[in-house]
């Protein structure tokens, strides 16, 4: 960087500082809230008592609970219903570890308010196998070694389950695309592709 641009830079920084902050209202809350966040509400306590009723179906069972509105679906599943097969990896909808089915579509349960699942059908990894027998996708992941540490695996399996709801005979490209919202840090990807392909073959065979 030349000296000139450098001095220019610093002068611009200073200039910006001179402006101070103006606060805009509306949809975009950040300026006011950024400050509020520092003060941090005492209301946290009041709010924690603000539970509301929720009714939904999880793995075909009707569930009625009282929850805080901020509860995510993953927290409901893991903490309230003790369905710990669903894993939380990033808790920000950035990895896919928490994938479950909501009305047979794949969603990130860590990044969905539980209240948004009201009246809907949720299927978790625990709901996929029946009578102790693995679902064909699960069996394919075992047979083709579509996992290493296994922590992202429930999410991978559920994404594959959603794929089979969406396409009856997905090709490799469709499989890759539909599985692309699930990160695997062990990077078992080649075997994950093999697993899903094999499950697809078996369901059409």
């Amino acid at each position: 960087m030349s000296e000139e641009t450098k001095s220019n830079k610093f002068s611009r920084r200073k200039f910006v500082k001179g402006i101070g902050s103006s606060i805009a209202g509306g949809y975009i809350l950040s300026p006011a809230i950024a400050k509020a966040a520092k003060k941090i509400s005492k209301e946290a306590k009041d709010f924690s008592e603000g539970k509301v009723p929720l009714s939904l179906k999880v793995n075909e069972s009707v569930i009625n609970v009282m929850i805080e509105p901020r509860t995510t679906l993953a927290e409901l599943l893991r903490d309230e219903l003790k369905l710990t097969g669903t894993k939380v990896v990033c808790n920000h909808g950035e990895c896919g570890g928490c994938t479950v089915l909501l009305n047979n579509k794949a969603v990130y349960s860590c990044h969905l308010l539980a209240l948004d699942a009201a009246g809907k059908d949720v299927t978790t990894i625990e709901g996929l196998s029946s009578n102790g027998k693995l679902h064909k996708i699960q069996q394919a992941f075992v047979d083709e070694d579509g996992l290493q540490c296994g922590f992202c695996t429930p999410g991978q399996v559920m994404a594959a389950a959603a794929l089979l709801y969406k396409y009856s005979k997905p090709d490799k490209q469709q499989i890759m695309k539909e599985m692309s919202g699930n990160l695997c840090r062990c990077a078992a990807y080649p075997n994950i592709i093999k697993s899903v392909l094999s499950a697809v073959e078996k369901s059409n065979g």
Partner: peptide
């Protein structure tokens, strides 16, 4: 050889440390 801990991992039964309650 298929991994012997495969079935409990794909079914969500495997209890990882972060699953301990």
């Amino acid at each position: 050889t298929s991994r012997i801990d495969g079935a409990v991992k794909v079914s969500g039964e495997a209890v990882y440390t972060s699953d301990v309650i």
